[in-house]
Simulated assay, not measured.
Amino acid sequence: MSQLFERIDTVFLQVKSLDEALPWYQEVLGFELRWRHGSHAALNVAETPLTLWEPEPGQPHTPHPYLAFNFYVKDIRALESILQERGVETEPIRDHGDVKTIDFFDPSGNRLSVCSW
């Protein structure tokens, strides 16, 4: 059976405020803004964009309750150093055997995770 889909087009993540989140994702994580329209903005992250969106006025922001995705890097220890130099509080690197992960939080309280193998 052939695949029905070619790729994941984007990953969505709710943030409290685009005005607060966008500079952090751009300056701290180095993502380039692809576009912004109303309550949504897409950032370039390799092949799959990350689309941030803020709730409608009066609606609460709820940080993501689980990890729906993770980023990948070749050198997780170098990433840890860079994040900490940029003021990001990281959790300790976890060693899962062949895979290592590190988690941290964005300004909206969303848990973000990075893996390396």
Rank of each mutant, 00 (worst) to 15 (best):
P23E: 10
Y25F: 15
E20R: 12
V45W: 13
S108P: 01
T10M: 04
N44G: 06
A41T: 06
M1Q: 08
L18S: 02
A41R: 01
F105M: 03
P63K: 06
I102T: 03
L43M: 11
E91D: 14
L67E: 12
F31Q: 08
L83D: 02
Q84G: 00
V114Y: 03
Q84T: 15
Q14F: 13
A21V: 05
L112D: 03
R86D: 09
L79C: 06
A78C: 00
L18V: 07
L50D: 02
F12Q: 09
H40K: 09
W35S: 12
S113Y: 00
F71I: 02
H61M: 11
P107S: 13
A46V: 07
L33R: 13
G87M: 12
K16M: 06
D103H: 14
L33Q: 14
P55E: 00
W35Q: 14
T10F: 13
D106H: 09
V28C: 10
D75P: 04
E80R: 05
R111I: 05
N70I: 05
Y25G: 03
M1L: 13
Q26K: 12
H37Y: 12
I76V: 15
M1Y: 04
Y66D: 11
P57W: 05
H37F: 10
I102R: 01
F69K: 04
S39D: 11
L22M: 15
E91W: 01
S17V: 03
R111Q: 13
F71M: 06
I76S: 01
I82F: 01
R7G: 00
E56Y: 08
E54W: 06
V11T: 15
E27W: 04
I102H: 02
E80A: 04
L52E: 04
D106S: 14
L4D: 09
I76G: 00
V15C: 06
Q3I: 07
K16Q: 14
P65Q: 08
V73D: 05
I8W: 03
D9I: 09
A42L: 04
Q84I: 10
E32D: 12
S39N: 11
S116D: 09
A41F: 03
E91F: 06
H96N: 06
N70H: 14
R94V: 06
P63Q: 08
D103W: 08
V28T: 15
T51W: 03
G30Q: 09
A46D: 15
A41C: 12
D9V: 08
T48K: 05
H96L: 11
A78F: 07
D106C: 15
F104P: 00
L22P: 02
E6C: 04
R77D: 10
L52M: 10
L22Q: 07
F5S: 12
Q14Y: 10
E20S: 11
G97I: 04
L29K: 11
W24I: 03
G58H: 11
D106L: 08
T101H: 04
T90N: 00
R77S: 12
L52T: 02
D98M: 09
A42K: 01
E47G: 02
E6R: 13
G87L: 12
L33W: 02
I102W: 01
